[in-house]
Design a protein around this nucleic acid. Structure first.
Lengths: 158, 158
DNA sequence: ATGTTTGGTTGCATAACGCAACCACATATG
DNA sequence: CATATGTGGTTGCGTTATGCAACCAAACAT
């Protein structure tokens, strides 16, 4: 049996995972954020198998998260560059990094630190909040159907 | 060959993915956020296979993201409840949901809407920013080794 | 007492992954 | 020019993960 698809779930989390939820995929995106561009750079920085990397790069290009560029016209040496859609994954990766810093790597401290390139200020911890900056925990959240809700989603959350 | 482990990467994103990066795992956590507690609730709301759900619930309990409770002492009918560590995944799921709303479900609109239970205010879009609320894009970010950096991480980012 | 729900386990078929070997093309070196 | 090295893959093979259906014991409902 083939792997089950997530894009039928009427849920944006499932839709996101359908694109980047594969094993290795988000780490390839992380590498792109860290500056990798060529096949060999991804290969060495990740320790991934070549065929898997080929597959993931292809799928990320197809998903419009990476773009395949050929810097020299006559050469087939490609570079993989983040698209606008790909760069928009930054909050996902940073919130994962902050969760990992706090709950996985608590002992040794954060392996990587992010800060403002200009001022050196460190990052604010990402949190769920209203536009008035009121922080919301899970039990303060109302979960209701949105404009794109299916009938089953409606039935569940109304 | 067995699946390659991510927890050797000296990266908190990889460490996070080692715990929740499996196929289905983050959707199980989403269901816990949406209120599912029993095996059958997860089963019906996700459309997941029973053996896979058994495996994921076990691993999430082992990772201290879910806790297995037995409401009635003499019964073995369990409930799976989010721990503090599990609830801390909220920013990860919300940033994924917002990315999916914007880039995957753009046409139909968001399937699910989150808001402040008390005031009804809707959520702020999650973004990477300094403590002064200055929004940072990828090219404004300095990526440097943290206190837990390995020698290879040091070499890469110094 | 009987049937139904719950929370699983087991077996089997298919898909995904990891590793090594191979290959064509491009570039560097002598 | 000849040879070596680097790049960006593809292919084959063995192992692991996933999906589905069937089965099952304990708990609960009638």
């Amino acid at each position: 049996m083939s792997r089950k698809r997530f894009d039928t779930h009427n849920c944006s989390i499932a839709g996101t995972l359908e694109l980047v939820g594969d094993w290795w995929t988000l780490l390839v995106v992380r590498e792109a954020f860290f500056g990798s561009r060529t096949f060999t750079q991804f290969l060495q920085n990740l320790g991934i198998s070549r065929n898997i990397l080929t597959d993931r790069l292809e799928k990320l290009v197809e998903a419009d998260i990476l773009e395949k560029h050929y810097p020299k016209a006559q050469s087939q040496r490609a570079q993989y560059i983040l698209t606008h859609k790909g760069k928009a994954l930054l909050p996902v990766l940073v919130s994962m990094m902050q969760w990992g810093d706090q709950w996985v790597n608590e002992a040794g401290g954060a392996p990587v630190k992010l800060s403002d390139l200009q001022t050196g200020e460190h990052l604010r911890t990402m949190q769920v909040e209203t536009e008035n900056l009121k922080k919301l925990d899970l039990d303060q959240l109302a979960i209701t159907p949105g404009p794109g809700a299916s009938t089953s989603t409606l039935k569940r959350f109304e």
